[in-house]
Design a binder for these strands. Structure first.
Length: 569
RNA sequence: CGGGGAGUAGCGCAGCUUGGUAGCGCGCAUGCUUCGGGAGCAUGAAGUCGCGGGUUCAAAUCCCGCCUUCCCGACCA
């Protein structure tokens, strides 16, 4: 490809709309342009990267035995009613009506479509297992799209769905995808980590997220410093440390303290001159099954997902002021477990063993001190309901956990029979008996993976593409196209590389060298070959690696072959 | 949905306080010189100042309403 005939509208300055690195660089390198919030066009350069990424995904899916197909983007409401998700999916589901007033939605995911399809075409155990995938558009009407294509509303995704005869089969299918995903991100040249994840509203029994490690990542992941345990914060378990045994001899007398207008942990600890680990944070939640009170230590954070999973309820959110008042008799900021009745109280394990603690007095401007378990109140249960943090003990080995940031680029779920049951996807087994298929689903955000690669690999001059997804493998910079000698050499190298099947871009533009070099760095092609004065004068050309900046001089003779060797090395 | 910014030429921005002929840099076009890290000179094209309404002799500027967009938070298969 010739640069002069390609379209790479690079930007000299950072666009005002972009904050994060990958977004900024993708705009500046002429890979994408925004049409609306969270909706982007992919330009030719970006398209090449996307397609290379997709191709690697495709090859590994195929290797794992999955079959590519294409499912409709616009989906009828009916199948969503069948699965029961039309009413639970929420506003993220972009709903629309056709001219006959029939309801549709834009596909945010395709469990309904695939299940509907498979139940029609698969009827025998002989046709199973089967794993079907596609690589195309999804639309999710995110509350707040941001970070360019990292959290876009419309995006390219690879989504796969496996169908098995039984649970054991489903686990094998899941394992194959876990393998395939590991190979994919390996091949893409990314530093990543599979982590245990919460399976969320999509349902199912277990799940892993594939996280690309990057300081700018949106997600916090927790990894063990000693064993190979890794999970996202939503899921990360904490080993139960404390015991419920306390020495009653240490108990001091319960006391009531005036704490005018002090609602936050900081205000209370500052006023009472105690550490936040002595506070019992009391949170009132409303759930689909009524209100619940959750207790965590003052220096800990509640994990609503753990709490929700523990309670096994559909909805859970922090209670509004009026609910808090009706339960505690006090405004927000003064809730405490002492004297609370007729409401379920769940305490975090982290509170076990605490003595003489501080908590809200269930009365305006009052806290109580020297609060002790069993004497002053007894929670219904203790459970793991807080967010894991740096230093917490690993659930497997008890060694301290560390936190890292990451970008979720892939997610695999074992779904079980959630959809096959609701939508009636059954097959006949060898005995002629109808059984539900056992499903799994597996997604990779292709655009997000590209953005993550850029987050992970760039410098102040621009993108440094991992070779497997670089838009071109080699950029030949013809310094002065009006110099016939230079032009001839550059063209020969270009032709030679093309004939060898190398993706090469020849910068034959009538631009000053500085511009060409700046653009080269920005766009991030791994190998840059410079054909300039030296090529004509000394028969020498420069080969520079984008990643290391290392420059190598090679002779003009057989340059194409030499460059090809360098690419491989 | 709550809080905070922003919308003026393709991009980055000034002008608005105090109403009076719409500006700068980059980019773009043409010409000459230049040519190994974002050149110089000259000439030129390009804007319903986000939209609608109001005040006024006169609105980019003041007032009201709306839209869009970015950031923080809540949310997130």
């Amino acid at each position: 490809m010739r640069y002069s005939q390609f379209l790479i509208p690079t930007l000299r300055e950072d666009p005002a709309e972009a904050e994060v690195v990958s977004h900024r660089l993708m705009l500046r390198a002429g890979m994408i342009r925004k049409l609306a919030a969270g909706v982007y066009s992919t330009l030719p350069l970006g398209e090449r990267v996307l397609q290379k990424t997709a191709q690697i995904v495709r090859e590994e899916m195929n290797r794992a035995g999955a079959l590519e197909l294409t499912l409709p983007f616009v989906q009828p409401a009916e199948i969503w009613h069948e699965s029961g998700r039309w009413n639970v999916y929420g506003k993220e589901l972009m709903r629309l009506k056709d001219r006959h007033n029939r309801e549709f939605c834009l596909g945010p995911t395709h469990e309904e479509v695939i299940t509907d399809l498979v139940k029609g075409v698969v009827s025998s155990y002989k046709q199973l297992p089967v794993n079907l995938y596609q690589i195309h558009i999804k639309f999710r009407d995110e509350i707040r799209p941001r970070f360019g294509v990292m959290r876009a509303r419309e995006f390219i995704m690879k989504d796969a769905y496996s169908f098995d005869v039984d649970n054991a089969g489903a686990e094998i299918s899941y394992g194959k995808m876990y393998e395939a995903y590991s190979r994919i991100f390996e091949r893409l040249g990314l530093t990543f980590r599979p982590v245990e994840a919460d399976s969320g509203p999509i349902g199912g029994s277990f799940s892993h997220e594939f996280m690309v490690l990057a300081d700018t990542g949106e997600d916090v992941i927790v990894t063990c410093s000693a064993c190979d345990y890794a999970a996202n914060t939503e899921k990360a378990e904490i080993k139960q440390e404390g015991t419920s045994e306390v020495n009653e001899g240490d108990f001091k007398e319960l006391e009531r303290v005036e704490t005018p207008d002090m609602r936050t942990i900081e205000e209370v600890t500052g006023f009472l001159k105690v550490g936040s680990e002595l506070l019992i944070k009391t949170l009132v939640f409303t759930t689909s099954d009524g209100p619940v009170v959750a207790l965590v230590r003052g220096d800990h954070e509640i994990n609503e997902i753990k709490l929700k999973n523990y309670l096994n309820c559909n909805e859970l959110e922090l209670a509004e002021e009026d609910v808090i008042e009706s339960i505690t008799g006090a405004p927000r900021g003064f809730a405490g477990p002492v004297g609370l009745e007729k409401v379920k109280i769940i305490a975090d394990y982290g509170l076990q063993g605490g003595t003489n603690m501080v908590t809200g007095g269930n009365e305006r401007d009052v806290h109580v001190i020297n609060v002790n378990f069993n004497r002053d109140f007894t929670p219904d249960t203790f459970a793991d309901i807080r967010l894991a943090d740096e230093g917490d003990p690993c659930p497997r080995c008890g060694k301290p956990l560390t936190t890292t940031r990451g970008i979720e680029v892939g997610h695999i779920f074992k779904l079980g029979t959630k959809y096959s049951k609701s939508m009636g996807a059954t097959y006949l087994d060898a005995d002629g008996k109808a059984r539900e298929m056992v499903m799994g689903c597996y997604g990779i955000g292709v655009g997000r993976t590209v953005a993550a690669a850029i987050e992970q690999s760039h410098d102040e001059n621009g993108i440094i593409f991992p070779a497997p997804i670089a838009p071109f493998s080699v950029l030949v910079v013809l310094v002065n196209p009006t110099d016939e000698g230079q032009a001839k050499i550059a063209e020969e190298i270009y032709d030679g590389l093309m004939q060898d099947g190398v993706d090469v871009l020849l910068d034959d533009r009538d631009e000053r060298p500085g511009i060409k070099f700046k653009d080269a760095d920005l766009v991030g092609i791994p190998i840059r070959v410079t054909v300039g004065k030296n090529a004509v004068k000394d028969n020498k050309i420069d080969v520079k690696r984008r990643k290391t900046g290392e420059v190598q001089e090679i002779p003009v003779e057989n340059a194409a072959a030499a460059i090809k060797d360098i690419i491989v090395s």
